[in-house]
Design a protein around this nucleic acid. Sequence first.
DNA 1: AAAATTGTTAAGATTTTGTTAAGATTTACT
DNA 2: AGTAAATCTTAACAAAATCTTAACAATTTT
Lengths: 220, 220
Amino acid sequence: MKKILIIEDDNSIHNVIEELLQTNNYSTYNAYSGTEALLLLEKEKYDLILLDLMLPGINGEEIIKKIKDIPIIVLSAKASINDKVNCLLSGANDYITKPFDGKELLARIEVQLRPKNRHSNLETLKYKDLELLNDNHTLLINNNKTNLTKTEYAILKHLLLNPSQVITKNKLLDLVSMDTEDCDENSLRVHISNIRKKIRDCTKKEYIESIWGIGFKMKE
Amino acid sequence: MKKILIIEDDNSIHNVIEELLQTNNYSTYNAYSGTEALLLLEKEKYDLILLDLMLPGINGEEIIKKIKDIPIIVLSAKASINDKVNCLLSGANDYITKPFDGKELLARIEVQLRPKNRHSNLETLKYKDLELLNDNHTLLINNNKTNLTKTEYAILKHLLLNPSQVITKNKLLDLVSMDTEDCDENSLRVHISNIRKKIRDCTKKEYIESIWGIGFKMKE
DNA sequence: AAAATTGTTAAGATTTTGTTAAGATTTACT
DNA sequence: AGTAAATCTTAACAAAATCTTAACAATTTT
């Protein structure tokens, strides 16, 4: 559950935000002055800060300059372009003017909290119970980690890229031995056999089908 | 110089944006329809996309769903909360309603382009019992100080920045010898071995895993 | 049933990695 | 500048992981 620090001195606005976030499954933490906020920030790590600008103690602009590693959304009645630009350039990640709509606030919070490198999602190949992780060359089978060798990984990747298509033996052979022209079909067979064994050990099912005389494909 | 793709069918707005960006030192690229945008996106990598929603060809909402690894700022005349929320939740990073102020647009562009992991100077990298101080040589292992050499520090830092990801041997080699092209893989192995030894002497545990044929990563 | 293809297994060959120590280079200090 | 200490690279060898080969069993096609 993500932890959000609300820095806002107006009690009624504070309560509205707090309730909105809690009903949407965030943990909320409250600061009613700039100085109180800094104390809390020293003690604990938060995932996001919602920040009012006009605060007793230290004002919002000062807080923005001090905080460098937590995303900040400014929530302010100040609607002038200068205020916006100053805050954004000095480190805030977003700026919403009051009065604001709850749904928009929630959406903008999600933008800040979602993982920056959605690369990983893009580059994992999913197929039934299998998930091939690109960034560490492992295969998740029903969320159990299984290590693949480099060639096993290359073979399975090509099969999973087009699960409905037959991959010819020759194409797969190119993967197994990129440069060594002395590549046995036998060797490929062993690799396939090893992959099947690893998957079978976890799922008791067959995932790779062999097409007689042509090559291999994923089972439907 | 950062490359920004402007996707907008209205010629006059397009020109205004283009001039604004160019006078602020961005390279601009132009698409006047959704389909044209997708063609350009296939050919080249951009740092940011400015996106109108109502486009000939494919509309903006579809483009948002297709693009996963480039920040998108929506620029639209549609001011309804529903439009905003939909775009933000389906992948846009910001949403500005027309007419917009040039200075605000520039500020919001900077927000998207600035590096996400601004590890402030004071911050340390923590991972399990390890804490890498940012003084370029100190590693705390269970709060015991251990001295690292400059390259050991650089290697460990890169491993700790993305502890779940494999760092390739080549990437690490670049660190070991920034300018000397005569960098042996052997040398890297020795450095890794030395780091492991220092950690092992304190914790009796292994922290660095080697991925055969690829590189290294932190153990989970 | 014979021939061809595929599947499995285990033993060697090969490649990559880990460790150590000595020599070369850089850095720090007087 | 000259010396000592720290660091880096190289080389040699040991250990581990992976790949290939080969033998044989199982399967499919003709």
